[in-house]
Amino acid sequence: MITQTKATIYLSDKRGCTQQDWFRSYHTFNSGVYFEESRKPFGNLREFNDDTLKGGCTVSKYSEEHSCVLLMPVVGTLNYSAETATGAIEPGQVAVISLPKQTRLDITNPYQEELINFLQIRLSVPDTDGPSGIVEFDLDAQHGNRIPFLPAFASIGKYKGRGEDVLFVKDAADSGVFVFVLEGAFEVQNRLLHPRDGLALWHVSEVEYEALSNDAIILLLQVKL
């Protein structure tokens, strides 16, 4: 018996876009830009942006509320600087930054010519005492397994075709799960997702998924509703 869960699919080609000659950002949620349809935040997940930045350039983000920001490089190294943290990260690392209200985060491409691509994920939090620092993971060394890089909150995995897994959700009554496909294709809770597609799921106790291509990469975030 297949149980149909409440869900919203965010197709990659339906995302909002902010673009200049030095910076491009695809927004899964509104993030201050206009959409063909309303895209409200999903629980405390306020932004999920897929950003590309030109060499030698810096983009600044301002936080209007206490936030936890995750920076995840996909292509290239990035430098970041905020009131609470400064550093450099590359693919295989995630910067977790506690950002106080009304403060700025600067993200810089250290290369002169090459573009970089990264995910910028922002969650609202009641205060800025949450986790911070740099988390590392190795998708190739743990191929076929989901890697929790923030326990009980965020995980990532790389799978061969027909590789399957299940995410068990804590506090399902008050939680949702946001799924984002970085590479390849997946079937998630009986829904087909392609590269850079997202899926929001409400009040699920478990999330089943299967890779439909080799070296497919999936990111899962548990959010507060």
Score class of each variant (00 low, 15 high):
126 P>H: 09
171 D>P: 00
118 F>S: 07
1 M>S: 13
122 R>N: 04
144 G>L: 07
171 D>R: 06
171 D>T: 07
174 D>W: 07
17 C>M: 14
119 L>Y: 12
14 K>A: 08
126 P>L: 10
176 G>W: 01
7 A>P: 02
151 P>C: 06
11 L>K: 15
194 H>N: 11
53 L>V: 11
209 Y>P: 01
203 H>W: 05
35 F>D: 02
149 F>Q: 00
125 V>R: 13
163 G>P: 03
40 K>Y: 04
37 E>N: 05
16 G>H: 07
176 G>E: 01
129 D>E: 15
26 Y>V: 08
76 G>N: 05
172 A>S: 13
221 L>D: 00
185 A>H: 09
14 K>H: 12
25 S>G: 11
116 I>V: 15
187 E>Q: 11
25 S>E: 11
60 S>N: 12
210 E>P: 01
81 S>L: 14
22 W>R: 07
64 E>M: 15
175 S>Y: 00
207 V>T: 04
15 R>S: 00
54 K>M: 11
110 P>H: 13
138 D>Y: 09
11 L>Q: 15
52 T>N: 12
62 Y>A: 14
219 L>V: 09
64 E>L: 15
15 R>F: 00
215 D>S: 10
149 F>H: 06
83 E>F: 14
11 L>C: 15
206 E>S: 12
132 S>D: 08
224 K>H: 11
152 A>Y: 10
114 E>K: 14
58 T>P: 08
7 A>D: 02
106 D>C: 12
116 I>R: 02
189 Q>Y: 03
26 Y>I: 07
172 A>W: 02
210 E>Y: 00
107 I>M: 05
70 L>N: 02
214 N>H: 10
32 G>C: 08
168 F>D: 10
3 T>E: 09
110 P>C: 13
105 L>Q: 06
208 E>L: 07
